[in-house]
Design a protein around this nucleic acid. Structure first.
Length: 139
DNA sequence: GCCAACGTTGGC
DNA sequence: GCCAACGTTGGC
């Protein structure tokens, strides 16, 4: 199983909205960056991803699961094959892990969140995943 | 094919 | 609100 991190501005799509979307999940649309798109295409059903609130909050607030693998983005311009995956909220972090927390943890200094701060869909290593879960109070 | 100009993202 | 980083566009 692979791990990821996806970013959203809570003003446009928040963790609460993701939770309300339920177990069936919802499409993660609007990705218009090729690196991010490639990451979406690599996701497999059952993969987990951290849900990060950018701009407002700047913290990892929950964990989502891939419930449907990449397929064409219905919101994309015609002729441009952007993709979406479907995510369902799985569990919240008991204690959100902020960007500041990540930066303060030497073991997380290589996280894509810091190194490629503008990338909206990023891979997370198994070690990073475990540590962030621990910091966030997730078993 | 290079590079300047411009737009967007996201932290501060 | 500002600015740095990065991607994209368009002139040459």
């Amino acid at each position: 199983m692979a791990y990821w991190l996806v970013k959203s501005e809570p003003d446009s799509w928040s963790w609460d909205m993701q939770v309300k979307a339920g177990a069936k999940g919802t499409e993660w649309s609007g990705v218009r960056n090729h690196t991010a798109k490639q990451n979406l295409e690599k996701m497999k059903k059952g993969d987990r991803a951290f849900f990060y609130h950018s701009n407002v909050g700047k913290e990892i607030v929950g964990i989502v699961e891939v419930v449907k693998e990449s397929h064409p983005d219905p919101t994309g311009p015609k002729g441009e094959p952007w993709v979406v995956v479907d995510f369902a909220a799985r569990e919240p972090l008991a204690k959100p892990v902020t960007l500041q927390d990540v930066k303060a943890e030497p073991k997380l200094k290589d996280m894509a969140l810091i190194k490629y701060s503008r990338l909206s869909v990023q891979p997370v290593t198994a070690d990073e995943w475990k540590l962030v879960c621990k910091m966030g109070g997730v078993k």
